[in-house]
């Protein structure tokens, strides 16, 4: 446990199969506290699967995952402990449609953190203000635009006061003009020092805030570097091809 202080997330030789299909091949990854990582790569390369393994939405079959000093295995208590500390934002928001925006934000703090309702609501309002939609608190998700819904989803995760935030293609389901409002919130969050792992195709976001960009293909980490070096001087041919396609237009 030498890494305990230094790394908040450690993936050590993680392997995963879907039946015969080998989705993650010997993934090694260490994430420092406060580090902002952007993960990119073609679809089907295993980027989403990798971050979904970190809070056990997917199960890895081999290797070791340690989050905040807790080993991720089949122990329900460990899984619960990790999920409390790791927030996640999904491509399709996954807000609870039968609850108001405010109730969406207070549900987990009340039931998981056992927080008094008043306190939970105060915290929820604080984060809703941060994502700039406090006036929508008493509406239902179905009454909001996609961009607003995604910002609620970010606020909902932040209400649990997580140590790490995982973003799984948070802007892929949004109209172009709504992407910016979500990215602005994410940039602010990054600048405040939140540890973030973000699967995204928004290369502008990567250049702006990332400490490290990771390129994945066919279940492997092909290349990782600081954004400047990554974009200006990619090492592998696969990365070069990918970047030329993403940045080429």
């Amino acid at each position: 446990m030498t890494n305990e202080q230094e790394f908040i997330i450690t993936l050590n030789k993680v392997n995963k199969w879907y039946g015969q299909f080998h989705v993650l091949k010997d993934i090694n990854l260490n994430v420092k506290v406060g580090e902002r990582i952007v993960i990119c790569g073609p679809s089907g390369s295993g980027k989403s699967t990798m971050i979904r393994c970190i809070n056990h939405l997917e199960e890895h079959q081999e290797g070791e995952i340690v989050v905040d000093g807790v080993v991720l295995n089949n122990d329900l208590k460990n899984i619960g402990q990790i999920r409390k500390e790791v927030g996640m934002v999904f491509q399709h928001f996954n807000l609870f449609p039968h609850l108001t925006v405010l109730q969406n934000c207070t549900l987990a703090p009340i039931w998981v953190r056992k927080m008094p309702q008043k306190e939970a609501e105060a915290i929820a309002m604080k984060y809703l203000e941060r994502v700039k939609i406090p006036d929508q608190a008493h509406k239902y998700p179905g009454q909001l635009s996609g961009g607003q819904q995604q910002r609620v989803a970010i606020a909902r995760s932040l209400c649990m006061n997580p140590r790490v935030m995982l973003f799984d293609e948070p802007t892929s389901a949004l109209d172009p003009e709504m992407i910016k409002e979500v990215l602005d919130v994410m940039v602010e969050l990054a600048q405040e020092g939140m540890t973030m792992l973000c699967v995204t195709h928004e290369m502008g976001f990567a250049k702006k805030v990332a400490d490290r960009v990771i390129f994945m293909d066919a279940g492997q980490i092909i290349e990782q570097n600081e954004p400047e070096a990554f974009f200006n001087n990619p090492q592998s041919d696969r990365t070069k091809l990918f970047l030329s396609q993403v940045l080429g237009h």
Partner: peptide, 9 residues
């Protein structure tokens, strides 16, 4: 998935 990610049992 949202419930699990939030830590609800």
């Amino acid at each position: 998935e949202a419930c699990r990610a939030l830590g609800l049992n």
